[in-house]
Design a protein around this nucleic acid. Structure first.
Length: 489
RNA sequence: GGUCGGUUUGCCGAGUGGCUAGGCGCUGGUCUGCAAAACCAGUUACAGCGGUUCGAAUCCGCUACCGACCUCCA
């Protein structure tokens, strides 16, 4: 199988030709959420980025196993030996069993992902279900001499590892710099070095989430689950590992170290990272408290949001920026995206009703190759979308008889839009609550019929009065040739 | 402080040496009883200074400003 796909590999900081280890199979692992709160716009970007990659690889003909984990064990609030597990904290605040918290937010996450029309991953492993695998990896790392046990906790020996490997090769750091910049935190006495990170933590008496192990009753370290689960489901070596840029260091750096130490080989061929979403120029994040959840977008229930934004508008907004660029949230930008999306979807739907002619007045093949090239160039969705908009002008022109298209080209054009708009980008017509049903809809239809009658009688005064009244009620009339359409604002 | 990245037209956002990115907005037009919607057209910017080059938003240097990571974070 051949392709011309190039992806930016964080490891080499270059765009590299994508060549799977075992074609036609592709292993894709993406870091999913820690389920202790509602998903926000940043989660959407991560999920959308790798959903499009998954869809695109499938479109190219690969058989992809897409693994996206759910972190349900919880991490500590900071890297010291104290702090509180986030899920535990949430459970305490909400008076729930930790697994109730996990289940609740996991369900909500899945709902949001479905609303964004994302495909379900092939496997969605949970950290809590892979304690044994994680312990086995700890055993391997201990046996290899890259970890040590202290008081029932096991730590990764970064200094030792760095003697034969480069700790920091993914994030472009040198261990000397890291050492000189490490902050002194309390409670690090157990570690030989501040850079060392936990593989297993002994649980203090108040810690509810705990499992038995050869070292202590405790819980796995913060970076271990991804190493253990990616290996279990994708093998010792796999093609792509993705996640948000904020996971680059230390999370992914630690993963690399764990895999090298435990399995003796690098696990990932291409590391891909999506950039952050910013709000007023600053990263949107849970720890910064400046995030807007997806449900808040969908319901319009947030001070910074002017109105309701349907899931597809959010998705299109994200796709109109390249995944490696930061993307700044604003109401204007979001509203612009929504309008553009409607235009694109409308034209895409119109292709089905186009009639072919003897010849084409538009270069369909050029459009196809431009679209293909955009995606091949590190999944450049904004450029792809720009080309699709060029085609929208043509489609409209075809509808209005300003252009002609051959039968052969029409088939190509149709499959181009279906492939990219629906299959690869995963856009759908927004499933807005249909106002055309129920008594409200019937009433509006009845009123519009009265107006229509008035128009036929050239009683425009009455017709306009009806329109003005409806407008003041927040109902917009859209007169068309076939009759009036309407929508509630 | 260290490392990395960014500064593009009213807004969002592509683009890496010469050719209009695109979307939204705005302006004009077509259609329509009028308006809206829809469609069409127009809307040429690249932080500052210096350098390389026949030619730079695009390469190099400096300055200013912004951000990310360095602690959990998509």
């Amino acid at each position: 199988m051949t392709n011309n796909l190039y992806v930016y590999n964080t490891l080499t900081r270059e765009k590299e030709r994508f060549e799977p280890l075992n074609p036609p199979f592709v292993g894709l692992y993406a870091c999913g959420p820690t389920v202790y709160g509602d998903a926000h716009l940043g989660h959407a970007r991560q999920a959308i980025t790798f959903d499009v990659l998954y869809r695109y690889l499938r479109h190219l003909g690969y058989k992809v196993r897409y693994v996206r984990n759910i972190t349900d064990v919880g991490h500590l609030e900071n890297d010291a030996d104290e702090g509180e597990d986030k899920i535990l904290k949430k459970a305490r605040i909400e008076s729930l069993e930790p697994m109730e918290v996990v289940q609740h937010y996991m369900n909500r996450y899945h709902e949001n992902m479905q609303e964004l029309n994302l495909l379900q991953p092939s496997i969605e492993p949970r950290a809590s279900g892979h304690i044994i695998e994680q312990q086995e990896l700890i055993r391997k790392i201990l046996d290899a001499g890259y970890a040590y046990e202290v008081n029932g906790s096991v730590y990764f020996d970064v200094i030792r590892y760095n003697e034969t490997n480069h700790y920091g090769k993914l994030s472009g750091r040198k261990i000397e710099d890291l050492l000189s910049n490490t902050r002194t935190l309390d409670g690090q006495s157990e570690k030989r070095n501040a850079l060392d990170f936990a593989l297993w933590k002994k649980a203090d008496p108040a810690h509810i989430m705990r499992w038995s192990s050869p070292w202590s009753e405790g819980y796995p370290g913060w970076h271990l689950e991804c190493s253990a689960m990616s290996t279990k489901y994708l093998g010792m070596q796999f093609d792509i590992h993705g996640g948000g840029m904020d996971l680059l260091f230390p999370h992914h750096e630690c993963e690399i170290a764990q895999n090298m130490a435990g399995y003796g080989q690098p696990s990932v061929k291409y590391w891909m990272h999506n950039n952050m979403i910013t709000i007023n120029g600053q990263k949107m994040g849970r720890s910064l408290g400046n995030f807007i959840t997806l449900d808040q977008f969908f319901s319009g229930d947030h001070d910074l949001i002017d109105r309701i934004y349907p899931p597809m508008a959010i998705k299109f907004f994200i796709l109109q920026a390249h995944y490696r660029s930061p993307l700044d949230f604003s109401n204007d930008a979001l509203q612009g995206s929504e309008k553009g999306l409607l235009r694109l979807l409308k034209a895409t739907g119109e292709i089905d009703s186009l009639q072919p002619g003897p010849t084409s007045s538009i270069p369909v093949n050029d459009l196809i190759s431009s679209c293909d090239k955009a995606m091949e160039d590190d999944m450049n969705t904004p450029v792809l979308i720009a080309h699709l908009f060029d085609g929208v002008k043509w489609i409209n022109g075809l509808s209005e008889g300003r252009h002609t298209i051959s039968k052969e080209d029409l088939v190509k054009l149709k499959s181009l839009y279906h492939n990219y708009v629906y299959d690869v980008l995963g856009l759908t017509k927004s499933e807005a609550p249909d106002p055309g049903k129920g008594i409200t809809g019937d009433l509006v239809e009845m009123i519009l019929q009265l107006r229509s009658d008035a128009k036929v009688n050239r009683d425009f005064e009455t017709a306009d009065r009806i329109r003005d009244s409806l407008t003041s009620l927040g109902i917009t009339i859209k007169d068309k040739k076939e009759g009036a359409d309407w929508e509630i604002n």
